[in-house]
Write a protein that binds this DNA or RNA. Structure first.
Lengths: 226, 226
DNA sequence: GCAAAAGTGTTCCATCTACACCCATGT
DNA sequence: ACATGGGTGTAGATGGAACACTTTTGC
């Protein structure tokens, strides 16, 4: 077999949503290159773990986060993307529910933080490019798969869902049409609980019915939000 | 940096279309493991080339094919997918126009052939899984990007396009609605040439107007075939 | 003149869009 | 009683689906 010394890494773009803000999870590097820069969590793949396992391990180690949704995003392998070695990075796209937003810098004292995607620091390596791709993926996927629920609490208000869509898609959505459409899918369970947000009429709580979604999907149903 | 000895490879799923058949390009391996099995063209990435360059080089070396469309598909890195070493394979999805279908086995006397995707041999490694993913990508992408034209001659009949869609999507399509829709996009140029296929009324030739497509796309046009 | 493929238009139905008023609560 | 956010229905426009006959050629 040919001699080859290319390193294989994984990096993750982890999105969270809170207070009408779409956040992304970053760590501050404490070694060169790009020491003190912010970067996506990630690292080299170990020889005895699968790629997904590597992502989950790195996230746990560096940020203490466990994700609610994970899928492969894209692989980046251009020459010179890491000044030290040739590194091919297999990147992942992840979503975290608010109840799992707690983060903790790791033992190496790396800093960890959630950043508003609209207000990001400079990122190390080609991570800005990766993040851009992830944001597109999120925007697209939101329209044809019910992944928005992995960014909300288990029980949520319809207005939360609506605001989530408006924030991520960066456009206005008509409340009545949106509600009609989503409820028409029959994949939400309307709970018998109301929440009063201080002022205004109390709103109903809803839950995403994942089982119903999968059942409907098998029968040819297609989730689709314009 | 941690010791790590994972190899990085690229593999390509190359589709061609001829005589109403969707074909995929395979090579017959002449070394173990899977000696004499059919497999996707590919191989290890060299240290001084980008991933796309590696794919194009391997395709050239192993099959003598130059592709007309190339995009990254997915990366496979499970433990044990190659019995010799840990190999992470970054796979690509490619399309070839009929005028570039000529293939040639390489100097190592590897066999190369086009196979009907409906009638495939057993494939080496996890290549069946990769191919399955590529087929899905092709089917999906056909509906929201004008990539079908990269499987047809430069000048083609409308009925060719129609049959291409029916073959790949594996369903019937109404000729009138299909034609109306595609022509409505305004991205085809109707040539002043007719072709007689032996019997029946001679048909007009068309050309895909790529520039017009990109221009329309920038203005918000969205290619979309149900 | 018949077989074969190309070319074309209309009607119906479903879905999307736009849009405004009442309801339940807290202060 | 007023401010705040929640909840709902209708009419018009648009786009998709279904569908059959005429045209041009080769034999």
């Amino acid at each position: 077999m040919i001699r080859q010394n290319i390193k294989v890494a994984v990096d993750a773009v982890v999105f969270g949503y809170k207070d009408k803000i779409l956040n992304v999870l970053l760590i501050r590097r404490n070694i060169d290159p790009y020491k003190d820069s912010w970067a996506l969590p990630g690292g080299l793949v170990l020889e005895n773990e699968n790629l997904e396992q590597a992502v989950e391990r790195e996230l746990k180690e560096e940020t203490n986060v466990t994700v609610d949704y994970l899928e492969q995003l894209y692989s980046f392998g251009d020459l010179g993307r890491d000044p030290r070695n040739r590194v091919v990075s297999i990147t992942y796209f992840a979503l975290v529910k608010p109840e799992h937003h707690d983060i903790k810098a790791d033992t190496d004292a790396k800093d960890v933080a959630w950043f508003d995607v609209q207000d990001l620091p400079e990122l190390a390596f080609d991570h800005a490019k990766i993040l851009k791709k992830a944001k597109k993926r999120l925007q697209n996927k939101l329209t044809y798969e019910p992944i928005g629920f992995d960014l909300l609490e288990n029980k949520f208000l319809f207005s939360d869902l609506e605001k989530l869509y408006m924030t991520i898609l960066e456009k206005e959505i008509d409340r009545r049409n949106f509600r009609k459409k989503i409820l028409g899918f029959g994949i939400l369970k309307e709970l018998d609980e109301k929440v009063s947000e201080g002022r205004g009429r109390p709103a109903n709580l809803f839950q995403f019915n994942k089982n119903q979604y999968f059942k409907s999907k098998e029968e040819g149903f297609f989730f689709d939000i314009k």
